[in-house]
């Protein structure tokens, strides 16, 4: 987590030539991405461009037909979401993130509850509530996520708070890579700003972020680089400093030529 320097060869995640078809439908023709340590990578593309399939493959929810994924220097092969979690990749979905009937701390530690230090209680599967509460308070404070109490049910929390909680969870669990799928989609302006601010703090903690968003303004505000997908391919990656929102839109729609050759009018790709 302390390593915030990054070089071109030192990738947090490297996915090359990922493919996936559903029967005759090619959802992903050729997708690649090199994610540096501690960077925010935007992932954009039109509906049906293959973003969500690509994300699902990176988070272990879908098994690719071909291609390689390397995480932290070692090749991985995800068969299920827990494989990706173990490899240090956290995916935050818009709606699936939290259990309403549970408290903030319980949600943060869900699936990874710490067991009691007392060996007898540990044997009985008893959790260490005190420790988990303390640690989650620390992390939430550190990230500036303001909630009334980690003990109250998340049901009453605002959308921004819930989103922040789900994102902060990644850091608490020591994830190196966080995938965010439209994290501000349902949020108002102020709450969106809070989430974007949190994404910045994640980066400051050395976490790499893949951020899917349709909002180009937000993207250029928070992302370091952006990868564009079109018709099942990753067609370009740009430094955000070198491109305008309009430029990104041009790449998405095809108004600006891609970096790689694409069968633009291919009939094999069905949306």
């Amino acid at each position: 987590m302390s390593d915030t320097t990054s070089t071109a060869t030192d990738f947090a995640l490297s996915a090359s030539h990922i493919t996936r078809r559903y029967g005759a439908v090619v959802a992903l023709a050729d997708a690649s991405m090199q994610l540096r340590r501690g960077e925010v990578m935007g992932l954009v593309g039109d509906n049906g461009a293959g973003k969500s399939t690509f994300l699902k493959i990176l988070s272990g929810a879908v098994i690719p037909d071909g291609g390689d994924i390397v995480v932290g220097g070692s090749p991985v092969s995800f068969r299920r979401p827990s494989d990706a979690l173990e490899a240090g990749i956290e995916t935050v979905y818009q709606d699936l993130a939290l259990v309403d009937t549970m408290s903030a701390v319980q949600n943060v530690y869900l699936g990874r509850e710490e067991l009691s230090k007392n060996p007898f209680l540990r044997l009985l599967n008893v959790v260490n509530d005190g420790g988990m509460r303390k640690r989650s308070r620390e992390v939430l404070t550190e990230l500036g996520v303001g909630i009334q109490s980690v003990n109250v049910s998340v049901k009453g929390m605002s959308g921004g708070q819930r989103q922040c909680l789900a994102i902060a969870r990644a850091l608490l669990w020591g994830r190196q890579i966080v995938i965010l799928d439209e994290p501000t989609a349902a949020l108002g302006v102020r709450e969106s700003a809070q989430v974007l601010e949190l994404i910045g703090r994640l980066r400051d903690h050395g976490v790499s972020v893949i951020l899917v968003s349709h909002n180009m303004q937000q993207l250029v505000q928070v992302a370091d680089r952006v990868t564009v997908m079109r018709l099942g391919r990753t067609i370009a990656t740009r430094d955000v400093a070198d491109i305008t929102p309009e430029g990104i839109v041009g790449l998405i729609t095809g108004a600006i030529p891609a970096d790689v050759s694409t069968p633009e009018d291919s009939a094999t790709i069905v949306h």
Binding site: L96, L98, V99
Partner: peptide
């Protein structure tokens, strides 16, 4: 029971 999708996403 509360949210099966969320639990599954946590690797449960």
């Amino acid at each position: 029971g509360g949210n099966a999708s969320a639990a599954k996403a946590r690797g449960i």
